[in-house]
Simulated assay, not measured.
Amino acid sequence: MSLIINFLKINFLPLVAILISIISLRQSHKSTVVNLEAKYSDDIFKNYLLKEIPNNLEKITFKNEKINSSGIDDMCELLVSIRKNSIYYKYHDSDFYEDLSEKLVEIEDFLVEKGNDKFTESNFKKFSKELNERIHSFYSIIHNNHVGKKESWINTIKIIFQKNKKIIISSVLTSLVIFLIVIIILIYSGFFVINIPKH
């Protein structure tokens, strides 16, 4: 009996090793994808988020009941620039690109709409608050897309399977054949008793 158990252990080790490899490769693949996405995101958005947007927001001031038109124009140009430079996501992650574009257009429309209004100090504070809320929402879209990316188990296993198809199929078939042989040996040795009903 101990000989059979040892036989099972030895021949099922390759299958266990493959499963461990799949998990390891999944983690490695996921880490590579996340790092690559983080680099793309930094290249496209970092300067906008940390410098250009905050700097342009400071230019939007009001005087004599009017908002500084150059501040509005500069911010609108910046929003268009962000949309153009994030075109990569239109082909890589269309849902994210659509959300991003809609929010940028919303902010731009808001600025154009309010640009010709007359303002008091209290009205301008309300305008600034609404603008900041829209900008915050834009930042959140980028942040959530970056940290919320999750590679599904199914997609990862598919990728790994395609790369190691022959080895995996061969190992699984070998293990199944060995399992069947062991079962047959156990049956013939009397370890398992199969009662065949008589008619």
Rank of each mutant, 00 (worst) to 15 (best):
K66R: 14
I67W: 00
N68V: 09
N68G: 09
N68A: 07
G71D: 12
I72F: 08
D73W: 13
D73Y: 15
D74T: 10
D74P: 04
M75A: 03
M75L: 15
C76K: 11
E77L: 14
E77G: 13
E77N: 15
L78M: 13
L79D: 09
V80F: 12
V80R: 12
S81D: 14
S81F: 05
S81A: 13
S81W: 03
I82N: 09
I82P: 07
I82Q: 11
I82G: 09
R83E: 13
K84N: 15
K84I: 10
K84Q: 10
N85V: 06
N85W: 08
N85Q: 14
N85E: 15
S86V: 06
I87S: 06
I87Q: 02
I87N: 02
Y88A: 06
Y89Q: 11
Y89L: 06
K90V: 03
Y91C: 08
H92T: 09
H92C: 04
D93P: 03
D93C: 07
D93V: 04
D93A: 14
D93G: 04
D93L: 05
S94Y: 07
S94I: 11
D95N: 14
D95C: 02
F96G: 01
F96Q: 03
F96D: 04
Y97T: 03
Y97V: 01
Y97L: 05
E98K: 14
E98G: 01
E98N: 14
D99T: 08
D99V: 01
L100C: 02
L100Y: 10
S101R: 13
E102D: 12
E102I: 02
E102C: 09
K103Y: 06
K103C: 09
K103S: 15
L104C: 11
L104F: 00
L104M: 00
V105P: 01
V105K: 10
E106D: 13
I107M: 02
I107S: 02
I107P: 01
E108Y: 07
E108L: 09
E108K: 11
E108T: 12
D109K: 13
D109V: 01
D109Y: 08
D109N: 15
F110Q: 03
F110R: 03
L111D: 03
L111G: 04
L111P: 04
V112G: 00
E113P: 00
K114P: 04
K114A: 12
K114V: 03
G115A: 11
G115S: 11
G115T: 07
